[in-house]
Amino acid sequence: MTDTLTQSTTAEPHCVYAAKDFSSGAHPVWCPGCGDYGVLASLERALAKHGRPPHEVVMVSGIGCSSRLPGYMSTYGFHGVHGRGLAVGTGLKLTRPDLEVIVVGGDGDGYSIGGNHFIHACRRNVDMLYVVMDNRVYGMTKGQPSPTTEPDWDSEIAPGGIGLRPFNPLAVAIASGANYVARGFSGDPNGLADLIVDAIRWPGFAFIEVLSPCVTFRPEQMHWKKMVRPSSLSIEQDRAAATALVLGDDGFSLGVLYRGDRAPVAPPIKPQISVADVEREFALRA
């Protein structure tokens, strides 16, 4: 690990923002007790700590309960279509490297309809943060199994369980090239805020999978607070070891699980030619 990667590229800013400066004041559509409130609070705290003003931050999302989040923040935002938040964020960050781009969404949005974009965002390693609020259910459509749902979870659309192996987003992220992979818990807003600040400052594509209970359709997830614990390991660089770690754990170990040192995509170069130069290529001799 090089020093440039272990240290923040910017000095710790003088903290001039409070968490509330990042709140739009709009009332969320979320159910009382929803884990996403904790994620929203964590993001507001993290951005205050990070120290960039709200107008330099863009929250990008897809569709679903958690994707409503950009409207609840005082930053710029883009609430797009289902599953495509990462693509919007990629285009934005590549053309506006001066902005802090954070993509948020849920497990259905990111791992099912947007699964292909997730893989390729990890490969592309654009310098942005992706936060997935995983509650292992489609909540907005009232309780269908998502890619991370346990195979035996009973639901109206899949009585007796969907019977499929859950998707492991952390292993997929590490295998696909994400440069920073962590797991957080919505019930631990301070710990999650610290992770978010760390992830924002880490170069390249950072991915935080957040356990964010759905109290309405998965009330048993309220027990997650008893199951989570800090991860005993945090792997640097070694993707095989990191993959073994995330495939081997029970899904409740929190913290930074993997950090790599891939260089993120470079910003566009300064113009070398003009459009008039391009036009001359077509000219025949007079």
Partner: peptide, 18 residues
């Protein structure tokens, strides 16, 4: 892009940024 869904949404993201 990885597909046309991505390429058009990247385009939109860039456009949003100006």
């Amino acid at each position: 892009g990885e597909d046309e869904l991505a390429s058009v949404n990247m385009t939109l993201g860039a456009a949003y940024g100006g």
